[in-house]
Amino acid sequence: MIKKISKIFLLGLLLYFIFLLEMSNLYTFPFLLVICFLVNFLEDPNSRTGLYIAFFIGLFWDIYSSNYIGLMTLFLLIICYLLKIILSKYVRIFSISWIPKI
């Protein structure tokens, strides 16, 4: 359990620093969002890594914008969850096995 929580925490920390980089004037393309959808699309539908990524990106997005905290977090989580349901129930697609499961 502790190992799992520490993995989630590390993932959050990593995404936080990438997010800060993206908020600077170095990048204008929202590549974290693209990564979020790609991971959710390509990973094993039973894995939750993509959902954690969606949660953290949504949370940071809310904090560093004028949104209410939780708005984009829940929106991204629900979208990614629906994507996973559709992929697991109705679509057969290859999944990338090296995306680590948390």
């Binding site: 800060l20 993206e22 908020m23 600077s24 004037n25 929202p30 997005w61 560093y64 914008s65 004028s66």
Partner: peptide
Amino acid sequence: ISKDYLFDN
């Protein structure tokens, strides 16, 4: 300090 993620803020 920063720009907004997607919008013009």
